[in-house]
Nucleic acid binder design. Structure first.
Length: 560
RNA sequence: UGGGGUAUCGCCAAGUUGGUAAGGCACUGGAUUCUGAUUCCAGCAUUCCCAGGUUCGAGUCCUGGUACCCCAGCCA
């Protein structure tokens, strides 16, 4: 772990807790990460994970993992498994066992009964449309439900019958009796329980009614002794309700809710609903498609846990809504991989080179460092032969000024090898390039040629020894900075048709040993990662994590 | 005046009790370089949404505006 991570950035929540601790207002702190298992975790969740687990880490407290599983209709075991794996992959450890809000269903039910007994909750039979009408609008107060003044006995009886399964889905709900005229709509007699005759992934068929988020979250926090319940800004309006339950129920503790702004990334959607749509419609190949901003997708793409944690540190935590430039993410992963990725040469768009003054059949075993600045990386062997592959981007028949690569009559350095000169361009009848005839300057291995400067360096592989590789070049999934900003345009209209481009290339021999998930820098090209599902010794598949910075591309762009 | 929030460089973001605008990303030079990468140096807000006011002094306090975000699911 780098130093930058060791000293993670302070933020308003951290400052607040730090102050509380100094004033002795708080003992051991407890936070929690409460995902709903209805989809995969994405980069936005990473921000929350880093915050919650980070806080616990920084202050010597605990962070719980609690699945917020109050809506079984949308939840699945596969998501639970994926979420656990993602959190562990990121390098965090939850305190104690995994918890489920459903662990507390009995207690929650008992508390609901107490609320009824105290005259603070009632069974309501308004249908959804009626309920909406009675709720009023943002500017007008709501009206009390006709069921609001039922007796405690009747409510108790009704609620019990709801639990027994006497009524169909949606027939009745249990509501808190708070204030139908409250300016905060969340306080207009919110729903506590609704009837759902569905199997629950944890509790099976024990229940046919399930508590709402509002009735579950704060009490669960209290039961677990959570001290700081950190959530996103949209729950701010729920805080009075969160507190209402804590104040009206005999809970064992009084956690506090603190809100922060969720992460927005440009060229990206971070909404589980939309991500699920991409998966369900087959627009991507699954939740872990390398183009997805899910942690599973990013992992497959080649992001490292350190880079993601670092990124979360870079973006900070505030209450201000903003949009983070995806360039920051790229910067974070480049920073990690620049230091830690093994170097290799790989040709993505091959052009054949024939060295006319190199004997046929002659193989010279050249060597190259595994990393230019580290000696703890193993050296690689690079066989050098008469026929080589180089990248099409590194040759131009009519080069512009400042093109420091190969061109007719021009010299270039083959990385880790010799300087060559292009003598002849061979084309077929259609005028398509077939091969380049070049000569080697035999006196340039490990030293510069006499009397002249060769500025360009290009990568290459021996045609005879190269290993075929499939390389998947990924780009942003969306062309628009804010794909979901336009209210009357579907975000799918902004899909990038070229978000995935598959090419067949040639890699240096060492790549044959690439184990799944190994990170490489293909020199002069970018960072790549052997696909953890598809790549093996039979078939090498590399995903481009991110390209290297390319100032030549910038120069070209300016020129055109 | 429905309620709740937020406004500091192109983007993210620090800014203790008011004392004279951190850092990162991006960008622009220039140096080094067998990766046009990395690294290295240098530059990049007389100004903190706007307008008034208080003060010797305000991004930080007061007043009044403006813009944007969230809330009317038996989702979380």
């Amino acid at each position: 772990m780098s130093q930058a991570e060791a000293v993670s950035a302070p933020n308003f929540i951290r400052n607040q807790i730090s102050e509380e601790l100094q004033q002795g207002r708080e003992g051991k702190i407890v936070t929690r990460f409460p995902p709903e298992p209805n989809g995969f975790l994405h980069i936005g969740h990473a921000k929350s994970i880093c915050l919650n687990f980070g806080l616990a880490e920084q202050f010597g407290g605990d962070c719980h993992l609690r699945f917020d599983d109050t809506n079984p209709a949308k939840e699945e075991q596969q998501y639970i498994d994926a979420i656990k794996e993602d959190i562990q992959w990121l390098g965090y450890e939850w305190a104690g066992d995994i918890r489920y809000a459903s662990d507390y269903f009995d207690q929650l039910h008992a508390w609901a009964v107490e609320l009824i007994k105290a005259g603070k909750a009632y069974v309501c039979e308004l249908n959804p449309e009626q309920m909406r009408e009675y709720r009023g609008t943002l500017t007008e107060a709501g009206r009390p439900s006709p069921y609001r003044e039922r007796t405690v006995e009747e409510n108790l009886d009704q609620f019990e019958r709801m639990r027994q399964g006497e009524f169909p889905d949606g027939a009745k709900v249990l509501r808190a009796k708070i204030d139908m005229a409250a300016p905060n709509i969340n306080l207009r007699d919110p729903i506590l329980y609704r009837i759902r005759h569905v199997h629950h992934h944890q509790t099976g068929d024990k229940w046919c009614l399930y508590p709402s988020y509002d009735f579950t979250h704060g009490q669960s926090d209290a039961i677990e002794g959570v001290t700081h319940s950190v959530c996103t800004l949209e729950f701010e309006d729920h805080r009075p309700l969160y507190e209402w339950f804590l104040n009206n129920l005999p809970v064992p503790a009084k956690p506090r809710q603190i809100e922060f702004a969720r992460l927005n990334l440009n060229y990206t959607v971070t909404s589980k609903r939309k991500l699920k749509l991409l998966v369900d419609q087959g627009i991507v190949e699954g939740w872990d498609d390398p183009r997805m901003p899910t942690l599973a997708g990013m992992r497959r793409r080649g992001y490292t846990p350190a880079s993601i944690r670092n990124f979360c540190d870079m973006i900070g935590v505030t209450r201000a809504n903003g949009v983070v430039d995806i360039a920051m993410l790229y910067s974070a992963i480049r920073r990690d991989l620049e230091e830690n990725a093994v170097r290799a040469m790989c040709v993505l768009k091959p052009i054949k080179i024939v060295l006319t003054n190199w004997d046929e059949g002659r193989v010279e075993g050249l060597r190259a460092p595994g990393h230019p600045a580290r000696d703890d990386f193993r050296e690689r062997e690079l066989p050098f032969t008469r026929e080589l592959w180089i990248d099409a981007d590194d040759f131009m028949e009519e080069p512009p000024k400042k093109f420091f690569r190969l061109a007719p009559g021009q010299e270039v350095r083959l990385r880790n090898a010799y300087v060559i000169k292009c003598e002849e361009v061979i084309k077929d009848d259609q005028g398509e390039l077939v091969e380049l005839r070049c000569t080697v300057d035999h006196d340039t291995l490990g030293k510069n040629p006499e009397g002249r400067k060769v500025k360009g360096v290009i990568h290459w592989v021996s045609a005879e020894h190269a290993v075929p590789v499939e390389v998947r070049l990924y780009d942003n999934l969306f062309l628009e900075e804010a794909p979901d900003a336009d209210k009357d345009k579907d975000f799918l209209e902004h899909l990038n048709p070229e978000s995935l481009q598959v090419v067949q290339g040639y890699g240096e021999p060492a790549l044959a040993e690439a184990h799944p998930e190994a990170h490489y820098q293909f020199e002069r090209v970018g960072y790549f990662c052997a696909d953890r599902h598809l790549s093996d010794t039979e078939r090498l598949v590399f995903n481009r994590t991110v390209g290297l910075k390319d100032s030549w591309a910038k120069i070209q762009k300016k020129g055109s």
